[in-house]
Design a protein around this nucleic acid. Sequence first.
DNA 1: ACTTTTGTTTGATCTTAATCAATGACGATT
DNA 2: AATCGTCATTGATTAAGATCAAACAAAAGT
Lengths: 240, 240
Amino acid sequence: MQYQSYPDTLTTEQELRQIYLFSCLNDQQLARIKQSVRQIQLEDGEYLFKQGQRTEHFFMLKEGHIKLLRLSLEGAEKVFEVILPGQTFAEAIIFLPKSIYPVSAQSINSSVLLSFENKIFIDILKESSATCFQLMSYMSQRLRMWINEIDNLTLQNATHRLVNYLLYQVPGEHSNVYEFNFSIPKHVIASRLSIKPETFSRILHRLNREGLITVKGRTVHIHNVDRLRLQTVNTDSIIE
Amino acid sequence: MQYQSYPDTLTTEQELRQIYLFSCLNDQQLARIKQSVRQIQLEDGEYLFKQGQRTEHFFMLKEGHIKLLRLSLEGAEKVFEVILPGQTFAEAIIFLPKSIYPVSAQSINSSVLLSFENKIFIDILKESSATCFQLMSYMSQRLRMWINEIDNLTLQNATHRLVNYLLYQVPGEHSNVYEFNFSIPKHVIASRLSIKPETFSRILHRLNREGLITVKGRTVHIHNVDRLRLQTVNTDSIIE
DNA sequence: ACTTTTGTTTGATCTTAATCAATGACGATT
DNA sequence: AATCGTCATTGATTAAGATCAAACAAAAGT
C-alpha cells in the first residue's frame, strides 16, 4: 500500500466538490477535509483493509476496482460488492464508536483511492444538517439495496440473478441490442452473484443457446434487451 | 385496521420518551410528535402496509408481532424480519422523496402499534443533530445486520442458520442449559431463515438426535449452549 | 517463443435442500 | 366430544446447483 500526499491544486477542490457527500460543504469545511486527504495506490490483489479492523477512514475510488468480501472458515470467498471508480465506500459504518469493518476490501487490478478521516467528517456532520441528510438518504438507498439483494438470493434463482446483472449494465434507453465488456474477471462477478464459476459459465452458455446473448471473452452482446428482460422480475415496486 | 386516537396522559410522554429515536428530543419537539401519534390495532394476518405503497408513516410495535415480507411472482413468501414489541420500524427508508415501502408488513397474531408521521419527524431531524446521529447510528447497525444476513445465506448452510437463530435467543450469560419458547409459528421462523418448513423440522430433529436440544411443541430446550455454539461461526469480527 | 500461472469451460457425479404426498398433532369452533 | 382448519412432521423423490476432474484459453513472466 503506497501512501501519497495529495497535491494542493485547484483540481483538488473540484475533485472533492464532485463527491456527493461533500457537495453541501462550505469552503472552510472542505478545507478541513482536504487537509486530511491521502491518496493511496494499491497493487492487484492488495488489501485496503480487512474485516474486523478498526474503521478510521472511509474512501473514494478514483481508478481501478475494489471488491468487498468475506471469507468463510473453509476459505470460501463471497464478494458482497464491487466498487467502481467515483464511488465512496465504508462511510456508512462509522457511527458505532470503535466500530470495525464488516468486510475486507481488496484491489482488483491496481487502484487509486482517496482516503478521508472519519473523525473529521463526523465533526463536520455535527455542523452540517444538509450533509447529515445526504448521508441518511444514501444509507436509505443502501438499506434498500441489501433488501433487494436478499430478495435476489432467496426468491430468485441463479439465472435470474445473472440476467438481472446483465440488465443492470444496460443504460435505460436501450431496448434492443446492446454490447458491453465485463470490467472484472468472471469469477468475481460469479461470487458477487453467489454462483460458482462453473455454473456461471453454464448459464451464459444456455442464454447463448437460447439466442438471447453472445459472449466472446469479456464481451457480452445482448441481442434483444426487452426479450432478456422477460427472463426476470423487477423486484422493486410491487404492490399487492 | 382500527385507528384509535391516542390518550393524552402522563404515560404517553413516558412511553414516547422510551423510544430510542425520541430520547434526545426536547419537550416542544416531543409534543409535535405526540400530536401526530395514532394507535393502530391489527387482527391476525392483517396488513399494515404493502410493498410499493408510499411511505408516510413509521411505526413502533407495542404488542404482538409484525413480519416484514416479500412475495415472489410464483407466490412464495420470504420473511425478511420479524418485529418484536418495543421495536420501531420503517423509519430508515423515508429519505428518498416519494419513497415506497420495500416490503409488506403483516400482523402475526393481533398487534398494537403506534404510528408516526414521517413529515413531522423529518422536520425535527432538521433541528436536532443529536437525533440525526441516533438515526444514522441505527441505520449503520442495520446495514451491518443485512451484511451478516447475506453472509448467513451465502457462506452458511441451513443448519448453521438455524443454530445461529437458536443461539440468538440465548441471553449472553448462559453457557450451559437454556430453555425458551418460539414466540411465532415455526414456518415463519423457517421463512425468516430461508428454509422450507419440512427442512426446518428435519434439522431440529437431527439436532435432537445428536443430543444438542430437545423440542416439544414451541419449547426449545438447549442442553449445552457452548456445545451448540461449536456448530456455528461467529460471523462478525473476523480478522485475517 | 516458451513456460507458467491464472482464469474459463466442459463433462460426470454428488449433495443439499426443495418438492410432493400423506399423516399426525394441536387449537379453535361448534 | 366431534369437526374443521392450521401447523408440523415424516417419507419418498427430484432438481438445482456444487463439487471434482480434466481440458482449454489467455495472460504474464522468463
